[in-house]
Design a protein around this nucleic acid. Structure first.
Lengths: 229, 229
DNA sequence: ACCTGAACACCGTTCAAGT
DNA sequence: ACCTGAACACCGTTCAAGT
């Protein structure tokens, strides 16, 4: 029950702790992207030496995973309760917004597959899939597909954002570039990409993301009835 | 028509070229993972200095993108012709095998969103979605969803593989670790993850991947008829 | 035109030494 | 117990100098 108390001494500022290191890391990642998180930048921000951080954190990948988990935990803890389907959509959209705010999370997610962030999302989706009345055997496929889709979009968005940022483009510059590049592809080899190029310019990532969720939910519902192959 | 001819001179071994640098990079990535590709390791393998590589290649991310594109291009060029649906499944499975052989491709893919590797896959999927008779407005959503799913799985598999490799685990060790970790989660907070934990131990990535493709195809077919929201 | 290889700036990480 | 900061090994990248 008893929360871990802070040490009695009241030094100037607060002393170093795992939590405040993680918090500073998140700020650094938000403001300067994935490459912005270095032990030197971090120790400068925390007014300490690089070595000090290693007392509270095992190494960089541990640090990144912890920062990622902190963000995800915060986001996944606001509960919604309506129908299973609309809860899934709400969770998915909430997650989309998290990625927009913290693009680096998209790529950091995959580094710690053992537990933490991915399980948090999987659990929320999984519970709703159960509520949807999907059979036991189909649950794993349904949740796995949704997860792969959600993580796939997250990663791609993160990469696009990082790509744009490092080249000093904003979002519409980026879409414009992709659109014109695709429209100049060889018509024989790339008819589909060309046909779809104009649509890229003013599409809405968030809406497209939701459309994919709905598509998968349709698939889940349609196969909920009969087939079990 | 005329293929670019190699220069007449026949020096000992072949001289450095963009192609052979890319080939050596692929070998390096296959054998030692993402972190194995360094300019020093590469120049040693090519019996040259690190600076020489920069004559043929702009920088590391250019090199990685080129290596990735080479692998993808090779894989996407074997054509299958049956029904649209089974072609999509074949392309997806073929892609899955590419990732198994070259896990680093999963994470390198996203770095060059402008064109190249992603468009190659998208084009093949897109053509089949058209053949499936999906309406123009639905095509983008359908292909986008499939792409996000496929790339999502690729990325996750790559990350899992890398995770296992750096810890010297093989695949079953890894699954075992995840399975037991999930089964020890708090029953109140993580009922779904716990319920699904035993299934992880002996699931088949390839089959699960295909199940997801089929699920999404079901969704596409079910919404092909009426609704246009 | 192409290659060499030393040099630069910058990483993650360690560790003896301090308090 | 916790922090300091110099030091180490290793990156990507550049560039004067060579052929």
């Amino acid at each position: 029950m008893a929360k871990k108390k802070a040490p009695a001494s009241q030094r100037r500022e607060e002393s170093l702790s795992r939590d405040c290191i993680i918090e500073a890391s998140i700020e650094l990642l938000d403001s300067s992207g994935e490459s912005g998180l270095t032990f030197r930048a971090l120790s400068e921000r925390l007014a300490t030496g690089p070595g000090a951080i290693y007392w509270h954190v095992a190494n960089k990948s541990d640090l990144l995973a912890a920062a990622c988990d902190a963000v995800v935990a915060r986001a996944m803890n606001q509960t919604v309760v309506t129908t299973p389907e609309s809860t899934i959509r709400a969770v998915a959209l909430g997650w989309f917004d998290v990625i927009e705010e913290h693009p680096w999370v998209g790529s950091a997610l995959t580094s710690s597959p053992e537990l933490s962030p991915i399980v948090r999302i999987l659990e929320r989706i999984g519970q709703q899939i159960r509520n949807l009345g999907v059979s036991d055997e189909q649950q794993w496929a349904s949740v796995g597909t949704l997860m792969a889709y959600i993580l796939g979009v997250s990663r791609q968005n993160a990469a696009n954002g990082e790509f744009a940022r490092t080249r000093g483009l904003d979002r519409s510059d980026f879409l414009e570039a992709v659109s014109t590049a695709w429209s100049q592809l060889d018509p024989q080899q790339y008819p589909f990409a060309r046909s779809v190029a104009p649509r890229i310019r003013d599409h809405n990532d968030r809406m497209d993301f939701l459309a994919g969720i709905d598509l998968i939910l349709d698939g889940i519902k349609s196969s909920r009835g009969g087939d079990d192959v």
